[in-house]
Computed example of a mutant assay.
Amino acid sequence: MLKLKKFGKALAAAALVAGSTAVAAAEWPTQPVNLVVPYPPGGPTDIVARVVADELGKRLGQTVIVDNRAGAGGNIGADLVARANADGHTLLIATTAHAINMSLFKNLNYNTRTSFEPVSLLTEGPLVLVTNPDVKAGSVKELVELAKSSKHGLTFASSGNGQSTHLSAELFRTMAGIEMTHVPYKGSAPAMTDLMSGQVDIMFNTMLSSMPFVKEGKLKALAVTSAQRSQAAPDLPTIAESGYPGYEATAWNGLLAPKGTPADVLAKLNGALKEVLADPSVKERFAAQGFDARWLSTQDFGAFIDNEISKWADVVEKSGATVN
Rank of each mutant, 00 (worst) to 15 (best):
S230R: 02
A240E: 01
V144A: 03
A18R: 11
D306G: 12
N101C: 08
D306N: 11
K311N: 10
T174L: 12
I47E: 08
S281Q: 14
K268G: 09
K274M: 14
L266E: 06
A257G: 01
Y110W: 08
K318P: 05
L256M: 05
A99I: 04
V316W: 13
D279P: 03
K268F: 10
A267D: 11
D314A: 15
K141F: 14
V135T: 06
S149P: 08
A191E: 04
G243L: 01
G177H: 13
L91M: 05
Q62H: 12
V282M: 06
V315C: 11
P280I: 04
G243S: 02
L154T: 01
H152S: 12
P190Q: 10
R50Y: 12
L273T: 04
Y39N: 14
L154I: 07
A72P: 06
L296E: 05
I93Y: 01
S149Y: 03
L11V: 13
L236D: 02
N324D: 15
L143G: 07
M211S: 07
V214W: 15
L266T: 06
P184H: 05
G42D: 03
I309H: 07
R69E: 03
L219D: 04
V200A: 07
A137K: 09
L167Q: 05
N161H: 13
L122K: 00
G320Q: 10
S197Q: 11
D134F: 09
F156P: 01
F7M: 15
S120E: 04
G160P: 00
F304I: 01
F172C: 02
K106N: 11
A25M: 11
D79G: 14
T322A: 10
F105Q: 13
V37R: 00
F291K: 00
D264T: 14
G61E: 12
E248K: 06
L222K: 11
R69G: 04
A97Y: 10
P38N: 03
H152A: 13
A99H: 03
A82G: 02
V135G: 04
T238I: 02
S281K: 15
